[in-house]
Write a protein that binds this DNA or RNA. Structure first.
Lengths: 96, 96
DNA sequence: TAAATTTGGTTTATAATATAAACTACTTTA
DNA sequence: TAAAGTAGTTTATATTATAAACCAAATTTA
């Protein structure tokens, strides 16, 4: 509770936190995998991936797996830093 | 990332998390004190205290200090449990 | 002592955010 | 070839957070 810095709102949303939490521990993950892991709807996931991508927290690579579209996500250096900051900030709330 | 349980939305909001985090470590705190510590506006604080109170996460006691109204907040047992659950859940996101 | 300001809030309106539903484009299967 | 499935995006709506406006009483200031 000392500093009480604001939590990065871009990471703080339930779904975006799940996405970042997942991507921090893997090389990359595709749309369907993230969807399954997080339990998000496709629409919501699409929107939140866009936001993280716009902030340059993640990189989105669009390709094809055979004839099906494949959206692959990777966390960026900026994203890693932002997530680490979020973790530190959040810890202050959890153990006051 | 294993279970990926949902975070209690009642606690997850930035300001309500701040309130709960503050109240978990003190006997009680009054409106003005919470307002200063969290940096919230009075309006927002009033609304969020109501929500936590409605969920029985905190107890709100209205009295007077001299001639001025005094709103005192205390975390309840329900609130303590909810906060502890939130902490455990959040930890899974922070260290995947 | 009357007017202005401060205190301690609540209520209401608006902005931001999350979510769901509908839609697109293409592919596979019956 | 019609129906169903895959992999998403777009748009509309519900939820949530925030700010602005307001209120009543007390206090300060001119």
């Amino acid at each position: 509770m000392a500093g009480m810095n604001d939590l990065d709102p871009l990471i703080h949303s339930q779904l975006r936190l799940s996405i970042m939490s997942l991507l921090i521990s893997v090389q990359s993950a595709d749309f369907v995998y993230i969807k399954e892991k997080t339990g998000a709807t496709a629409g919501n996931l699409s929107v939140q991936i866009d936001k993280l991508s716009s902030a340059n927290y993640i990189e989105v690579i669009k390709s094809f797996k055979g004839k099906k579209p494949l959206t692959t996500c990777k966390i960026t250096k900026v994203g890693i830093t932002a997530f680490e900051n979020y973790v530190n900030q959040m810890q202050q709330y959890l153990k006051p």
